[in-house]
Design a protein around this nucleic acid. Structure first.
Lengths: 218, 218, 218, 218
DNA sequence: AATGAATGAGCGTTCATTCAT
DNA sequence: GATGAATGAACGCTCATTCAT
């Protein structure tokens, strides 16, 4: 059993993170309730009792997924957005793609799925998620839209509503990774490009069709 | 204990439906795993053993929610769509609003939430949901978009991708009813109107701004 | 449902017997605990509540199997024994074969199996079985052996012990009908003839080996 | 609650055996179905969940009774038989008495009772029992009888049938320990001696009655 | 720090029994 | 007399959590 005698000598401070990664994978696959602490421990390479050395219980692991994995990723994404300048449409494109690269296509996309499923059962976790993640994410999109309207690049639509229309496909793309349904066969990047194209130009034929950009991607 | 003397006289045919309604409410509130059969039974006004007279087990109740509640609602909605004629944009508006009225704003919107959470754990239910509900729902939207393109009313965008961009906010509006997050404070109808406006016209200012329709609704 | 309107007009007094026969079959196949009242009812051609019109509960059905089916069969067998005269060995042969024909090879052989399994759980039934069936059965064998000893046809062995040695294979032949083991492939009649052959040649005090009789039976 | 401070320190290897012993006792007393896992646990000095640490379920406990308790006892008994030499009648006596001592008069005699009751419900367990226990047990008796016939010490009777006639009282003696019936009041050893006496005098092809041996034991 | 044996509350399911019809 | 919908106690099994080592 103890094949490697020093197998945890250097790992001490890494343990909580390993446990969280294991938990995230399993919660993504099976949901919160169907994931056993044993499985998390085993996938993290530890035994049943170890998670309790670092987390008070299953719910605390859930909460830590938000604060220890998701929020830091949002911090990084925000830094990328902030370092980007350009037209409103260029910033919108940037925000959508950076969002996807830094969160959507990573294991973190499991968290929106988890929150859809468990928000009602864990109000405390839901509050953390909403205040620290959703609100900040929406603020990013809101800024871009508002700036576009202010500069006259965008129409003066209702920002709050447009914002959610814009976010919904991004979130759905994250959720779809865990469902064997229609979305699943689509290429997410092309999907997001279509989103941007439609959001910017609409379905109606353009008076000037030079703005269409989705065809670049094939 | 015997509060109601005729407590089962004429209920036989009604029982399964009562149980499904109770299950749907509870699954919506707490998710599949966190809902106990006892609770379903109690909310349906029966006792622990009664659900098993009508359903083989918890999973069968889940499956019956799809086949007995959701699919009939889709049947009705389809009938409404089919009875509607008009321009592609008028039909799109019709489809989105009928969808919302006949499913989105009803208790049935719990089922997409459930499927997000449990598709991985119940492949059989997921297959039923995808084949009988998602595929048919997408087909409705696809027809409208394809007809619009064929008639020249819409641009020749990639139908499959546009379809999912269009559906995503509709589905998110359903999911959002069970989350205390941003979407929650929005008026769903106005949200869908914004979706239609953006999808048809895009964010860019119109060359002819007479087409904007969202202002009608306020 | 009521395809045959008078389907029970003539059956009223037959119902209890039909229920007992169904119960006997099912208890034999699956044991007492694993047999559901529903199954008994269905096999008897009635519904769930009907057995309770005739029997106070499951245990009463069990008890009635003894008193209503087994004991009458023993009565008949006893009548046959009593009408038979001959040497002790002839009477022994008669007893063994009549026992087998009237009980061993019928569905009644399920009852010894049931009693082996359930005597500890149903002391009242066990008492009935022991006092009314086992004791009377043993008495029959005891009489024959004692008469054989008294007449000098048999050795003066210990009657009580010999009696049980003699009965054991008879009972085992009954039990074996419900087990897929070694006994199962044997022909019961030939088995009992072997028993008699072995028992008699041990019981006879005198030493000519011409008496072997098992070959008669093919 | 914490009456015994070292309540599980060194028990890990002993637990499965303790649980099996408890299960064997309770299955013997009440049968398989009427024995609750809770009772087994309590009698083994553990709580409800502990048996599941060592056995996959109730049926696995049943199966383990055969493989972990009964078959090892048969191994030991076989070793004793194999170390014994003598005439066929002496070997027969040896086999019967060793059988009784190593299995019949121990708690293992519960297993034949259990198998009579449950063979039909657990075909897999029945197969294990028949192939590994019954078949091997019969082989032991068969060898002795065949050797006796080969040496001329026994008559040339039909071995398969005689074998089962011989075994039946041995098995019945085991079953009888769990029934409050006739057999119960007999001394098993004297019962087996009577069996041997009767069997041998039937098996011996030659006719001097001086060989009666049961009187020795009284 | 880490282990893993043990706990025990909780849940899905079954089924003997009841009783309004 | 017969039905069968409904009941509710009981049981097998699970799993988050604890704690002696």
């Amino acid at each position: 059993m103890n094949l490697c005698p020093k197998r945890w000598s250097r790992r001490k401070e890494a343990r909580p993170h390993e446990i969280l990664e294991a938990a995230l994978e399993l919660f993504a696959e099976k949901g919160y309730a169907a994931t056993r602490i044993d499985e998390i421990a085993k996938r993290a390479g530890v035994t049943r009792g170890t998670p309790y050395l670092y987390f008070a219980g299953k719910e605390e692991i859930f909460k830590a997924l938000i604060s220890e994995l998701l929020l830091p990723a949002l911090d990084e994404a925000e830094a990328l957005f902030n370092g980007f300048s350009g037209s409103a449409s260029e910033r919108l494109r940037c925000v959508v793609h950076v969002w996807w690269q830094s969160m959507g296509e990573t294991r973190l996309s499991a968290l929106p799925k988890l929150m859809v499923a468990e928000a009602g059962n864990f109000p405390e976790v839901a509050q953390l998620y909403n205040e620290q993640f959703v609100a900040r994410g929406e603020a990013i999109f809101r800024q871009v839209i508002e700036a576009g309207i202010a500069s006259g690049e965008f129409r003066a639509i209702d920002v709050e509503y447009a914002l959610h229309v814009l976010c919904a496909p991004v979130v759905m793309a994250m959720l779809s990774r865990y469902m064997p349904c229609g979305h699943a066969q689509l290429d997410p990047v092309r999907y997001l490009d279509t989103l941007l194209d439609l959001m910017l130009h609409g379905l109606y034929p353009h008076p000037d069709s030079t703005r269409s950009e989705v065809s670049d991607h094939a």
